[in-house]
Amino acid sequence: MATASAGESIQFSSTQTLKLQHEQTLLGHEDRVWCVVWSPKGNILASCGADKTVRIWAKEDGKMVCRNVLSGEHNRTIRSVSFSPCGNLLISCSFDGTCCIWDRSKSGEFESMITLEGHENEVKWARWSACGEYLATCSRDKSVWVWEASEDGSEYECSGILTHHSQDVKQVLWHPSMELLVSASYDNKINLYCQDDDDWTLHQSLTGHDNTVWAISFNATGRRLISCSADQSLKVWELDGPMKKTGVWKCMLTVSGDHPRVIYSVDWCKNSGMVATGCEDDVIRVYTLDDTDGLSLSVVHAQAHEKDVNCVSWNPKQAGVLASCSDDRTIRLWQVVAATETKLI
């Protein structure tokens, strides 16, 4: 779990007037960019999209540049990428029905290590559990698969197939400290699963959204989960009672009226507590926590991109640094600053 050291941690109060300062636009993808994500150390950025490539970006002379283009493993759109907790592994999920795990522990560069096959059609997302032992994948085939890594991490075996959704599964996410798995679906539901003896079972189904749930994100403590939907709302779900994987989750807050279109992405910053959203209206919005535990809309950055914002991702180490990507084929880097243009670090 990413936590900021005392020197890095920041608190933005809801009364501050904030804005997003554009830092850089990363060009290179030749089609829609679906996903952008920081490595756990926050020094590498990975992106992927309809051009069937994964791009690896890192800083050189103060600017992010493309260090590597990973191609040849997928013959359809690459929907998402995700890092392992150690940052040495990267998984790409494709509409071709496969996932590819890339390893950089040998040469320093990401090299294709294994292809995971099993889903019947498009794989939408994959994520490692906090300890790195489990990997979850989800697909349009309505299923969520849990894979278990071998001791040396070189092989993955399927240890459970969860078929509780009635429609395609858009995203999977692990709890930051417990072995609790969450999935979001086109069937408007969010499902939570945990292990009962050796079997993965459905623990709770969260209903309330009226349309596809596109993305989910935990806060730093893992006591809250935020979801975004095609119903144009955000919902915050809270663990009721002590921190255990069999705990019951309840909806504590619905934020509606701020987004006029589909919300494709939501990310809860583990350092600052800020929540960023990426919306079909090309806007990036940032919420801060207010005194009553509500979310206060602090930044509405219109025309953040020229087309739909597909994904937003907070840097896990550098406070207030946000990456976004879009149908406009670009990735953009932003810094949250006070409207007086003073950096709040």
Binding site: R32, A50, R76, T77, R79, F95, N121, E122, K124, R140, D168, K170, Y186, T212, A230, D308
Partner: peptide, 8 residues
Amino acid sequence: NDKERVAA
């Protein structure tokens, strides 16, 4: 109207 399904 699901752009992901349309793209696929």
